[in-house]
Computed example of a mutant assay.
Amino acid sequence: MKANDIILGIVFSSQTTLGILGNSFLVCLFIVMLLTGHRLRPIDTIFAQLACFNSLLLLSNGLPQTMAALGLKNFMNDNGCIILFYIHKVSRGLSLSSTCLLSGFQAITICPRGSWWAEVKARAPKYIMPISCVSCITHLLLNIIVFMKFKNLQASRNSSKLYDFGYCPGLEDTNIVDVHFGVVVSLRDALFVSLMVSASAYMILLLHQHHKQLQHLYVTNLQPRSSALNRATQSILLLVSTFVCFYTLNSILNSYMYLRKPKLWLMQCSAFLSIGFPTFSPFVMISSDSQFLKYCHRLWGRNAPHL
């Protein structure tokens, strides 16, 4: 085994393990808090969903890339490849839509009372689960094309259009179905990213206005609650910024690969970027949102032995 393959395997395995541990910690934390009767914020539902989808994304992309880098080339059969690509596409889309829902929900939460969104603010928590269910069903149905795309995979083994993902062979996106599907996915991604950027810009504007108002206030009894809301908003802004950064770099690289036959190292770089957000997002949430530390403190205080 070459030295660069060993280094690549270590990088992917570290990235995947770190991301799965972080996301699993968040999911387990929410489950334990819920079972022990602690009250969770409505937005924690979105955090839990995002952690689940990110874990699936890491398992369907990071884990196979690790095994391929460590020498297990093309170890999956056709059915395994199809299922793996399907899970990857669905989890990627759900991670995108959940991040968009997260930024939109927080923008509505901090909107001023006199705005039009104030009427939606009180009902917004009730819409989280219905929107999440519709999003999940939509992505499950949209990505059924993966099964159509790879149904003739075995017959195309000797095609000049075949390229290798490292752990599973695939076909270039050259037929008309793939082109149409690529356009639909690109429009979907562009819509979600635009909504995220718009919601983030709106939150930044509100935070700036709120900061200016606090400079002229002498009443301090409302400031602790406002500070907590501001910190939660800033954590979501940081989370969205992390997503947009990784997504933009990965999209640029994917666009370059689409114009020419991609090499294996380019696809490995794309895989590294695609699982970058799922890896770092749980640690961004934990470190920037003080509520998670409070949850841990409550559980530790409840389970700590009394001397």
Results as ranks from 00 to 15, higher is better:
Val184Pro: 00
Lys212Cys: 06
Leu206Ser: 05
Ile145Ser: 08
Leu162Glu: 03
Ile144Ser: 07
Phe105Glu: 00
His211Thr: 14
Trp116Tyr: 10
Thr138Trp: 02
Glu119Tyr: 15
Ala124Asp: 09
Val179Phe: 09
Arg157Cys: 00
Val179Ser: 12
Thr109Tyr: 07
Leu171Asn: 03
Lys151Met: 12
Arg113Leu: 14
Ile110Asn: 07
Ala155Leu: 09
Cys133Gly: 05
Val184Tyr: 07
Ala199Glu: 02
Ala122Gln: 10
Val185Gly: 01
Lys151Ala: 11
Val193Asp: 06
Ser160Leu: 04
His210Tyr: 10
Phe181Cys: 07
Leu206Lys: 11
His139Val: 05
Leu140Asn: 04
Pro130Tyr: 01
Val197Lys: 02
His180Pro: 00
Ile108Arg: 14
Cys168His: 03
Asn143Pro: 09
Asp173Ile: 01
Val146His: 01
His208Arg: 15
Ser159Glu: 07
Ile137Ala: 13
Leu162Val: 09
Lys126Glu: 03
Ile131Gly: 02
Leu195Gly: 04
Phe165Thr: 08
Lys149His: 07
Lys126Pro: 00
Phe192Arg: 00
Leu205Lys: 12
Val193His: 00
Lys126Gly: 02
Gly170Ala: 14
His208Met: 13
Asp189Gln: 13
Cys133Lys: 04
Val146Arg: 05
Gly170Ile: 10
His211Tyr: 06
Leu191Val: 08
Val184Glu: 01
Leu191Phe: 10
Phe105Asn: 03
Phe147Trp: 11
Gln213Met: 10
Val177Trp: 06
Met148Asp: 13
Ala124Leu: 12
Val193Trp: 00
Ser103Ala: 15
Ser156Ala: 14
Met203Ala: 08
Leu153Lys: 01
Gly114His: 08
Thr138Val: 08
Arg123Thr: 15
Ile144Ala: 06
Leu191Met: 12
Leu141Cys: 15
Val177Gly: 11
Arg188Ser: 05
Pro125Leu: 06
Ser160Thr: 12
His180Ile: 12
Arg123Cys: 13
Asp164Ile: 13
Asn158Leu: 12
Gly104Phe: 06
Ser200Pro: 05
Ala199Met: 10
Leu187Val: 13
Thr109Pro: 08
Val120Cys: 09
